[in-house]
Design a protein around this nucleic acid. Structure first.
Lengths: 229, 229
DNA sequence: ACAAAAGTGTTCGGGTTACACCCATGG
DNA sequence: CCATGGGTGTAACCCGAACACTTTTGT
């Protein structure tokens, strides 16, 4: 006879932000057992009448106050024993947040909330390090074949922001001239008439990602792709 | 106060097979309500102490008798109402089966099991058509950047099998010369000294996918990729 | 000898890569 | 005038795309 299953369903989110040429991840400090006082990904149990996406957005709102700009499903983790108490299946999501929505506020279950640089991560609860690594890989590969980098920038940005973002996340140097040529050739950027004044150096034009145009191109078989050595 | 959730966790699998220049999907006829007598993806509830992968393999074994050659997670579906009775989250998998393992046997919950050509699908239970479509897209795109086509062929195969497989699944003509050149240049195929005799026409050498070699190349930064017009 | 599928090379063009100097601004 | 980052063009090379005839076997 089969054992009657009592499995719980949770969602967890790996949310990335980019600021000051650093890639950061949103973590909460757990206020309850198990792993009390450990850092963990925001998330929690799915309620009876909400979709998985709603659950993620609700938990993010409750635990961190962050508004998400881009969200997609990452992977589902369900190995017995990944939660020391019950059997919990976690459906994980991958999110991006623009610098505007970078503000934080701890709330309900979370004792504390913080952005951590990807290079200075604390130990994480459960199997969250595994989830985080998977999310990072996904971000890196996705960056090369979908224009999602813009979700991590302000609506209007100098070209160099994009350049630095790619270099930071992919962790390699790229040729400025070729990169600019390539991206501009896609014609998915609109040049605004605004000017950005850096702390030092020559002012730069501001660009804006043209979602509309991208969709049109995409429907005509266009495929965003950036390659690197 | 939050509603105490009673959510069930299931797995479902979209299993592809390739035979006689046709792409097929493994379906079962449901023997129980809801959707009794409808065709559906093989799958079922996850038991208390098995992993998700184990659950998929067990269900496939129970319901179809098929042995799977390649399995990966596809996506998780959890919208309330997708199952008319309870709230069920389904973690879906994507599987490939070589022609050797093409035999079938109905069993437990399944009244009947059958391979359906991808072009002659019946109506499916639940949201299984959506799942199937997603799996098909995944197969198509994955074929272009990972050497998974081999999982659908015999261990030793004439080159033209691979060619036909790509044409069938991607639904487009490809140039034989360029395709062969490209694949051979990867050096992930081993030429055997066996010969395949087609029903008519000139005999062909048999090749074998060299998993070992592929892994080595991959570790050295090699990236399998096939592009099409 | 005919039908059917296997096997094979070359040319052309476009895109990617490599590479360095001048410009605008603030201090 | 100096430091800092923004903005720009060209030549070489490589890879992908297009393209057709010969070979081997069975009937």
């Amino acid at each position: 006879m089969k054992v009657f299953p009592n499995i719980k369903v949770a969602v967890d989110a790996v949310v990335f932000g980019y600021k000051a040429k650093e890639l950061s991840v949103l973590l909460i400090k757990r206020g309850v057992q198990p792993y009390k006082d450990s850092w963990a990904l925001p998330g929690g149990l799915v309620l009876e009448n909400e979709s998985l996406e709603q659950a993620v957005e609700r938990e993010l709102q409750e635990e961190t106050g962050v508004t998400i700009d881009y969200l997609e499903q990452l992977y589902s983790f369900g190995k017995p024993g990944r939660d020391p108490r019950n059997r919990v299946i976690s459906i994980t999501y991958f999110g991006l947040v623009s610098p505007n929505h970078f503000k934080l506020q701890a709330d309900t279950d979370a004792a504390d909330v913080k952005w951590f640089s990807i290079n200075e991560l604390p130990d994480l609860a459960f199997d969250h390090d595994k989830i985080l690594n998977m999310a990072k890989s996904r971000l890196q590969s996705k960056l090369t074949y979908q224009p999602i980098g813009f979700e991590l920038l302000n609506t209007e940005f100098p070209f160099s922001d994009l350049e630095h973002l790619y270099q930071t996340i992919l962790n390699q140097k790229i040729d400025r001239r070729n990169f600019r040529k390539k991206i501009l050739s896609f014609e998915i950027l609109t040049e605004t008439d605004k000017i950005y004044k850096p702390e030092s150096g020559r002012p730069a034009k501001l660009f804006r990602f043209n979602q509309q145009k991208y969709k049109e191109l995409q429907e005509n078989g266009f495929h965003f792709e950036i390659k690197f050595a």
